[in-house]
Design a protein around this nucleic acid. Structure first.
Length: 263
DNA sequence: ATAATATGGTGAT
DNA sequence: TCACCCTATTATC
């Protein structure tokens, strides 16, 4: 379940749980066996997220590049957890195990390859020194619908299919509005919204765009099916105005919006 | 039991 | 624009 917040949260948790001791690296499924052996017994120096990409820097080893894609997962487990499913890579530390399944990318790369990856990414609001002006500039050059531009990782890194629909709703913009027709103020708002929402996503480890007070939750967790305004809510009443949420296909993916709140 | 779906992206046509 | 990759869960027969 990976948009940018998930990857940054994983980096944070990896840095906190993998410890100071060398890591045991294996590929229970077998497809990453030789590479895993290169990492086995090394120490994890640092995990770092860049958009939806995750880089693990091990002592005396190449960089491990992971991209979860649509279905990949990196799950934390107890140290005695059995090997269940198609585990491409298992990293075992002192107090935690991390199991990687279904990644789109899992590869050992050098610094040059890593630079090539990040060079193709736009600003990531979760990274220090992310440049809002670069976001604005790239946005202004897109004739595509806003909803499509938001998915372009070179425009802004880390946004996925949930955030893109929710951002269009939260800014009250029709998802089909050409990106280059947005006002400066709208672009600024979008960047601030992305920064705020991604940070919140890291903290909660999930996407919550609705205001808990609006849902009637004053303490504790907001129910899972009440977290979002439009995503996967076609046919249901808009939480703001009651009109029916619509479903469209934009950039070959599903996009949800409220025809009344988003003009 | 089989199909459809999923918070993603690439490479061929 | 299409085909395809990866895996697990949910929906439909």
């Amino acid at each position: 379940m990976p948009e940018g917040h998930t990857i940054h949260r994983l980096a944070r948790d990896l840095n906190r749980t993998i410890g100071e001791a060398p890591v045991t690296a294996t590929s229970p499924q077998g497809r990453f066996a030789s590479e895993a052996s290169e990492l086995d017994g090394r120490m994890l120096n640092r995990a770092e997220a860049w958009g939806k990409h995750l880089f693990l820097d091990f002592d005396q080893a190449p960089l491990l590049h992971i991209h979860l894609g649509l279905i990949g997962k990196l799950r934390r487990k107890q140290v005695d957890a059995p090997e269940v499913g198609e585990i491409r890579l298992r990293l075992a530390g002192d107090d935690a195990i991390w199991d990687l399944t279904g990644p789109m990318v899992c590869a050992l790369i050098d610094d040059e390859d890593a630079a090539a990856v990040t060079k193709n990414l736009g600003p990531d609001p979760l990274r220090r020194n992310a440049d809002p002006a670069l976001f604005a500039e790239r946005m202004s050059r897109k004739k595509l619908p806003l909803s499509a531009a938001l998915l372009d990782q070179k425009v802004i890194a880390g946004i996925g299919n949930i955030f893109r629909s929710e951002f269009c709703f939260l800014t009250g913009i029709d998802p089909n509005t050409p990106a280059n027709q947005l006002t400066e103020a709208q672009v600024t708002t979008l960047w601030e919204l992305a920064t705020e929402q991604l940070k919140l996503g890291v903290r909660l480890n999930r996407i919550v765009t609705r205001d808990p007070s609006e849902v009637g939750v004053t303490a504790g967790r907001i129910p899972s099916d009440e977290r979002l305004y439009v995503y996967k809510r076609d046919g249901l009443p808009c939480h703001r105005c009651g009109d029916e949420i619509r479903l469209a296909e934009i950039a070959k993916r599903k996009a949800w919006y409220c025809p009344t709140c988003q003009k």
